[in-house]
């Protein structure tokens, strides 16, 4: 009896070759109000949206140099919402002509037994955190302003502690590969948030 072939590279080729363009920055707690105010003015006219999510990051260590990482996210304030499984590829800085960080991404909505499934597959949880904040949209751009909380007792999202005195600000666009023009729009939008927040392409490798 032969094992069914396992698709090793779920992200290359096919119809799901999407890229996430990303700019990041932060805002201190006391300036959050000003930023929210400005974003409400700049973004699409919609009801202000807030979220409270619990994210768990799972690793699968193979013999390759870097482990395979998947992120599972669930909403803590919206009961019954599907879980969110996300794969993010290695971020590419690109050159000066591209104004945002780019990484491969795959987003899938899943049922709530996602963690069990991942464990069965051999993944282990590397870290987890709680994200609480605001969501804005402008066209295809998504702006998230959120606070990251450390989870003090593993798995218990009731006892948390803020990681810093700032909110993380992320401006992202998910688009098919090669649509580098979207980064121009993102740059323009980021310009409008200055000097309150400086959104930049930050190479996470630099921070390891």
């Amino acid at each position: 009896m032969e094992a069914p072939p396992v698709t090793m590279m779920p992200v290359t080729g096919g119809t799901i070759n999407m890229m996430e363009y990303l700019l990041q920055g932060s805002v201190l707690d006391h300036s959050l109000e000003s930023l929210i105010h400005r974003l409400r003015g700049l973004c699409d006219n919609m009801e202000p949206e807030t979220f409270l999510d619990h994210e768990m990051v799972f690793l699968l260590k193979g013999q390759q140099a870097s482990p395979f990482v998947l992120r599972a996210r669930r909403s803590m304030d919206r009961a019954g919402a599907p879980w969110h499984l996300r794969y993010l590829g290695q971020p590419e800085m690109g050159d000066k002509n591209r104004h945002a960080l780019v990484r491969n991404c795959v987003d899938i909505a899943t049922s709530e037994n996602l963690t069990d499934f991942l464990m069965e597959m051999g993944f282990r949880m590397d870290h987890e955190f709680v994200a609480k904040g605001h969501l804005f949209r402008k066209g295809i751009m998504k702006i998230m302003v959120y606070k990251i909380f450390r989870i003090l007792v593993p798995g218990n999202t009731d006892s948390t502690e803020a990681l810093s005195l700032s909110y993380l600000v992320e401006l992202s666009v998910v688009a098919p590969a090669g649509q580098d023009v979207v980064s121009d729009d993102m740059r323009n939008f980021a310009e409008q948030l200055k000097p309150l927040v400086h959104l930049e392409k930050i190479d996470p490798k630099r921070l390891m």
Binding site: L168, P195, I202
Partner: peptide
């Protein structure tokens, strides 16, 4: 506004936290 509205060190810490969990898993 000249008073800081953001702190680059915080930006780095937060980005490192979401990117690879730096500073999150104190356990």
């Amino acid at each position: 506004p000249n008073k800081q509205t953001f702190n680059p060190a915080d930006t780095n810490a937060l980005v490192a936290a979401v990117a690879f969990g730096k500073g999150l898993s104190n356990w």
